[in-house]
Amino acid sequence: MSREKYNEKNIVAQLKDESLRAAAFSAIVERYSEQIYRHIRRMVLSHEDTNDLVQETFIKAWTNIDKFRGESQIQTWLYRIAINETLTFIGKNRGSTISIDTPEGAVADKLESDVFFNGDRAEALFHEAVSRLPAKQRLTFNMKYYEEMKYEEMSALLDTSVGALKASYHIAVKKIEEFLKENN
């Protein structure tokens, strides 16, 4: 199914019909896989980890498709799964990912040597600054800064008040600016 023909209402109806479910899910994958990939990649940085997490996200979505009642948008439902998967992954891999003890510039070095990173040193440092934020704050920053999501949407997704999200974003921006000031 092409993007032009994608119709949320029809897709939700098709998901409820067992004979049309697979085709509807295929359309969802085609429409949202890249968006979900970009969202996760900004959180975990590595292409390989992102690849695994995107697949896990859609596998979970398919497994729990009966629980999707169409009360929220498909995109919101997928984002919730992706966020859970990503935060679980970050939690499990805390030891092997960035910590307060990681030398400044180490993440940027790693990014610059990554064949799937097209940015320069300044961009690598920018992403290092973001990656040093606590996971939930990083999530808030990415959704606001890159995806330009409204606080109300983020609030529904993250079960956090709009006020708390605004504060979190404001603090994240200050931390990033401070890191860049020190490392540029």
């Binding site: 994958v29 970009r38 697949q55 097209n118």
Partner: peptide, 16 residues
């Protein structure tokens, strides 16, 4: 700046 291998998304969708 995050890139993907060529034809990655088609392959990803197929794998999913």
């Amino acid at each position: 700046p995050f890139a993907t291998p060529e034809g990655y998304f088609a392959k990803l969708n197929s794998n999913i």
